[in-house]
Amino acid sequence: MSTDSTQPLKARGVSVALDGRPVLRQVDLDVSAGEFVALLGANGSGKSTFVRAATGLVPMSNGTVELFGTPLDRFHDRHRLGYVPQRSRAVAGVPATVHEVVMSGRLAHRRLFGWSTKADAAAVDAAISRVGLPDRHRSSLSELSGGQQQRVLIARALASQAELLIMDEPTAGVDHDNQESLAELLGGLVHEGTSVLLVAHELGPLRPLIDRAIVLHAGEVAYEGPCEGLVGEDHAHVHAHTGQPPIPEGLTGEGVWR
């Protein structure tokens, strides 16, 4: 297997067993630099498990994952990775503001016992503005709606100025208008060179952005190719939202959240 330090994600033969039950079988998945890859599949098909294996959260029983050409267990440039977990576990037992949560996305850049720097503050401000919450810096997370909390988690991933964004169902439970805003934001990021691996159940307005789709079925890759090939892929539960205008080139992805 050749190593390519510019390829954000290269997974080969990834197998995972949870509680002794095989959940992923021999999954190969690549994300090339600047590419937007969608990982699709029905509930329980193993999408989250793949993402968790690729980020080192669950151990693999077989296979290899390379991030930017480095094997997962030796990968330390964690600031190059932005992760948006599934299910919002945003609210903990003690209040925290939007600013504080997004600032925790800067940890890979910060030194122990150090104050946050101007660069940290600027990255946090930019990330919060990008998800359309510039007037909510000082709001407590618990004062926000579920969709807004999801946006805070996206901002946290953006704050590390990651080169590879891995997002687990950021569109789940988000209405169509806000999915369009997310599409606008991701379109801008990809335009700037960010690579994206996005887990979704339905593509909706994100569809025109996607370079390649991979469909998991019962832990195995059932389809890999362009989105067009998905129409009629019943088991993937992917519905074509035709009639959406394609997002134009050169968009910035700023300030369009409704």
Binding site: L57, A92, E100, V101, S104, G105, L153
Partner: peptide, 14 residues
């Protein structure tokens, strides 16, 4: 704070 707020995100962040 990061560990107690979201353990998994903290792990992915290194």
């Amino acid at each position: 704070f990061a560990v107690c707020q979201d353990e998994e995100h903290a792990r992915v962040s290194g």
